[in-house]
């Protein structure tokens, strides 16, 4: 998937060896998705098997250099012009947790939501600190914004869940007055 296409796209700019590909990938994405060099070489081997890259000898230090083939270039062009599919949503731990929190008795849903909101905003504060370190590399700043938008969406969804849960609680039939309430009534 994306690592394969990312490496092909990087090779479009000229032949490179594994370490170079890794560091260029990480520079553009701010090390958000660290790659190990083993992964890079495994991917290159598969790309070579599929005829999308080919060996281009080795440099003075003995690094094995790869270059993209014509078939590889076509593959990259197709990748860029095809939208990323929204397939089966990945299993979302938070959505599952909330779905269970509202159905399992005894869970304080408000606290679950607030703790998550706090944690997500702390992550957002961290991303924002990175944004303030100007000048930001364009490629990396776009990746960073993607993290910001995702975290922001999560907080908005949590706000929505909270409002819904509160409304549902307000509409639920009033519980029987508790003992302590009765006591207060009689002392008045």
């Amino acid at each position: 998937m994306s690592v394969r296409f990312a490496l092909l796209a990087l090779l479009e700019q000229g032949p490179k060896y594994g370490y170079q590909l890794r560091s260029e990938f990480e520079q553009r994405t701010g090390s958000t998705w660290p790659l190990n060099v083993g992964q890079v070489y495994t991917t290159l081997t598969r790309l070579e098997r599929d005829g999308l890259v080919e060996g281009a000898g080795s440099d003075e230090q003995g690094h094995v250099v790869y270059r993209v083939t014509d078939a590889g270039r076509d593959e990259v062009a197709t990748w860029f012009t095809t939208p990323v599919a929204r397939t089966q949503p990945p299993r979302d731990e938070l959505a599952i947790k909330l779905a269970l929190a509202v159905t399992v008795p005894g869970v304080d849903v408000g606290t679950v939501i607030q703790q998550q909101r706090s944690a997500t905003i702390r992550a957002l504060q961290d991303y924002t600190r990175l944004k303030r370190q100007e000048p930001l590399d364009l490629a990396w700043s776009l990746v960073l914004e993607s993290l910001v938008f995702a975290a922001e969406a999560e907080v908005r969804w949590l706000d929505h869940c909270e409002a819904r849960v509160r409304r549902a609680a307000a509409e639920a039939p009033a519980p029987e007055p508790s003992r302590t309430d009765e006591k207060q009534e009689t002392t008045r």
């Binding site: 560091s23 990480e26 520079q27 553009r28 994405t29 701010g30 090390s31 958000t32 607030q114 703790q115 909101r117 706090s118 905003i121 702390r122 992550a123 504060q125 961290d126 991303y127 600190r129 990175l130 370190q133 930001l136 590399d137 490629a139 990396w140 960073l144 993290l147």
Partner: peptide, 27 residues
């Protein structure tokens, strides 16, 4: 710092200490 209000009460607050970096800066 972020302070959270609900019904007139402060219910939570994030601290000002930076959390351990979630992502590293690009080179």
């Amino acid at each position: 710092r972020v302070v959270f209000l609900r019904d007139g009460v402060v219910v939570d607050e994030t601290t000002s200490d930076p959390v351990e970096s979630l992502v590293e800066t690009g080179a």
